[in-house]
Amino acid sequence: MRRFALMLAILFAGPALAQEAYPSRPVQLIIPFPPGGNTDLMARAIQAELTRELGQPVVAVNRGGAAGAIGNSELARARPDGYTIGISPNNAITTQPYLQNAAYNPESFRFLCLVYDNPQVVILARNAPFREFRGMIAHARTGPEALVYGIPGVGSTQHILTAQLLRAAGVSGLNVPFAGAGPIAQAALGGQIMMFIESAAIPAATGLPVIAVLGDRRMPALPDVPSTGELGYPMAGTTYGGLLAPAGLPDNIAETIERACERAVRSEGYRAAAERLNGVPSFLPGNALRDRFLSEARTNQALLRELGIVRE
Rank of each mutant, 00 (worst) to 15 (best):
R2F: 12
F4W: 06
L11N: 08
P15I: 15
A16Y: 09
L17G: 08
Y22V: 08
P23H: 06
S24W: 11
Q28V: 10
I31W: 00
N38K: 14
L41E: 09
R44G: 02
A45R: 02
R52Y: 05
E53V: 08
V58K: 01
V59N: 14
A67C: 05
A67F: 01
N72I: 01
E74P: 04
E74K: 00
A76E: 09
G82I: 06
T84S: 10
N90E: 14
A92C: 03
T95S: 03
T95C: 01
Q96V: 09
Q96H: 04
L99M: 11
Y104K: 02
E107Q: 15
R110C: 13
Y116M: 11
V121Q: 02
I123G: 01
A125Y: 00
P129W: 11
F130T: 10
R134M: 13
V148I: 15
Y149R: 02
G153D: 02
G153Y: 06
L161I: 10
T162G: 06
T162A: 14
A163T: 10
L165G: 06
R167D: 09
A169P: 08
N175S: 13
V176L: 09
P177L: 04
Q186G: 07
A187K: 01
L189E: 15
G190L: 12
G190T: 08
G191M: 03
M195Q: 10
M195N: 08
I197P: 01
I197M: 15
E198N: 14
I202H: 05
I202S: 10
P209H: 13
V210N: 06
L214H: 01
G215I: 01
G215F: 02
D216A: 10
D216K: 03
R217Q: 11
D224A: 14
D224F: 09
T228I: 09
G229L: 00
G232P: 12
P234K: 15
L244Y: 03
L244T: 12
G248M: 11
R259W: 11
C261F: 05
A264V: 07
L277D: 00
G279T: 07
S282D: 13
L284V: 06
L289W: 01
F293L: 06
E296H: 14
R298S: 06
T299H: 08
L303D: 15
L303G: 05
E306L: 09
L307Q: 10
